[in-house]
Design a protein around this nucleic acid. Structure first.
Lengths: 198, 198, 198, 198
DNA sequence: TATGAATGAGAGTTCATTCAT
DNA sequence: AATGAATGAACTCTCATTCAT
């Protein structure tokens, strides 16, 4: 038991952070239902009681942990995409695809888990329903800022997002026998460019 | 050692069917984890014991119920698509989109649930991993039979499937503010036609 | 389904016999608690209902099966022992040891199981409490018939029985490290002979 | 993944102890199969959940409870036997018989239960298989220490143990009609002395 | 405030027994 | 008489949550 007392608030914040990190890691690894609160507490190095002093219940840990994560990555993606100057559409699309796939690869299943829980649980669905909208809006903004302004831009961006996410799915979840990934990627890339380059 | 019952009597087969139907309905409504075996038994109008004489465990009910369902719908979709003669690409694509969306709409969450469980549970994933491949192959077959043979057809079909499923998602899972569904649908439609009409 | 109808009573007897045999085999292999009635019915090739038309409950199958078995072996042992003529004490003791051990070896755990259930279950204990008395009496009879009449014969025989059963235990249940079985057997043999040869 | 709790707080250790005591009492009274975890929890005055935070399953309660018990009694018997000085063989044998029978009488069925479960359950058998060897070795040691060193001592001791346990059985499990217990005891006593006094 | 032991409802599952066919 | 599907109480075990310390 360390003698040096830290400011109460700061220690408290650290415990909360540890719980969120532990919860997030476990939820990604094993999913919501196969993760229990005792395991979260253990991984976080705190007591089970502590978990319930910071969060009303298990679901709130989930929501808070994924909110943190999403805030992190969404800004990350946008920052990376904005930083590539001067703007070239083809370069932008390639970066988008690359960054998006890296993000998923690094997420260790986080985004797949979240998609699942959005289907499964009403409260989680409600909480994250605006999630993708932010992402779309950000992309739309960047495009407008750089003079890419076809009609129905929002819908175009959405279609692009679906295509890019399809590529991601192919890469991670299923193994679709006989599919040539490079050919597929090239098709997606061309479709996206076609949609934005009017 | 105790193996699950092989229905012999008529009564028995009816019970098994009732369990599958009840299980399927509940799994779709509430998801795997929020459905318990007592509820399945009650809904099926049988005892809890009966459930376990037909199925080794809850997961097997899930697998059997969804297998039945998928066998039903996959042939349904293909039959509908093949029945539209003479073949016209545009007409084919419109039918595809319509039928696919109807299927999901009628499934009452079944397909969304299944996607979720494929992510969540290893045994279920293993069991249904080949599921989408069958669907792709069927579409490819129809196209070839009707003279649509661009290069990289499999990849093109896959891309089309992703686009159409994106449309479906938009319709069911999320509400993306400000998105004009008809515009979006038109974009998808054109992208699909563009991919197949080389 | 064989067309030739057997006399009802005879068929009935056969089913009962099959249930007893199946029950006995399973009880020996797995014990009373790990054997279930469905398995007995299956092994016997009859319906579960049939089991309950011949026996009030699972315990009665156990009792009847072991009673049959014990009647069989006790007469067997006595017949074998009586058939060795002319009577020589040493030869008698050797035969006794040999036959007893063979009996156990062939019983496939039956007697060990029975001992266990006699401890565990009041009704079974009650039913078989006289079991060993018959065995002692038989041995005593043979000895008297052949002029072996030391004082306290019943007690001597009982002590002999314990010694011989100890030899059997050593051979089957435990592995007592470092024990030389032949030496041990020789000791038992001599103690038994000593007890009877006054 | 969830490991059983390592008691840290004092309260916790008391609970574990209470569960062990309750389990032991019930296992002795009613046997393993007729004792359920709810009854153990109730008798221990704890919740069912508590039982499973200290023990992986019911069998582990059994094993731990009997291990505790055996550790207690095995040293007890040896200590009593060693404490009788100066060593006299006849006195030693009489003490051995007396203490052994008292032990069983006081055990309230514990040792009989354990013998039964050693036959019935593989894991329990494995856990306690060395049990009797320790007892034999202890007796052997005492005898050697006191100059009783006939050839084949281990086997002699084993034979003695069987005889003494036979006496114990007679006293507890069966009622062998017509057997004069005192005569029988005298026979056993003399056989044991004969085996050791060469 | 932090701890972690304790809770207990409820989950999945088994199986001796019954009874409609 | 025979069948075997059906029953449902009882069992073992889990875990989100609480609360005495």
């Amino acid at each position: 038991m360390s003698d040096t007392r830290m400011p109460v608030q700061k220690r408290s914040m650290e415990s909360k952070k540890k719980i969120l990190d532990a919860g997030f890691a476990l939820f990604c690894e094993k999913g919501f239902y196969k993760t229990n609160t005792i395991a979260i507490a253990k991984r976080a190095g705190v007591s089970t009681g502590a978990v319930y002093s910071y969060f009303k219940d298990k679901r709130q840990i989930y929501i808070a942990a994924f909110e943190d994560y999403l805030n992190g990555i969404s800004s990350q993606l946008i920052i990376k995409l904005e930083s590539r100057q001067p703007f070239q559409l083809i370069d932008f699309v390639d970066s988008w695809i690359t960054f998006y796939m890296d993000l998923y690869a690094d997420s260790g299943g986080a985004l797949a888990q979240l998609r699942m829980m959005i289907v499964d649980d009403e409260e989680i669905r409600y909480h994250f329903s605006q999630l993708e909208n932010r992402y779309f809006s950000n992309i739309v903004e960047i495009l407008i800022k750089n003079g890419i302004v076809p009609n129905n831009l929002l819908e175009r961006v959405y279609t692009c997002c679906i295509l890019i996410d399809g590529l991601r799915q192919e890469n991670s979840a299923f193994s679709h026998n006989g599919l040539n990934f490079d050919v597929f990627k090239q098709q997606i890339r061309e479709s996206v460019i076609g949609l934005l380059n009017v």
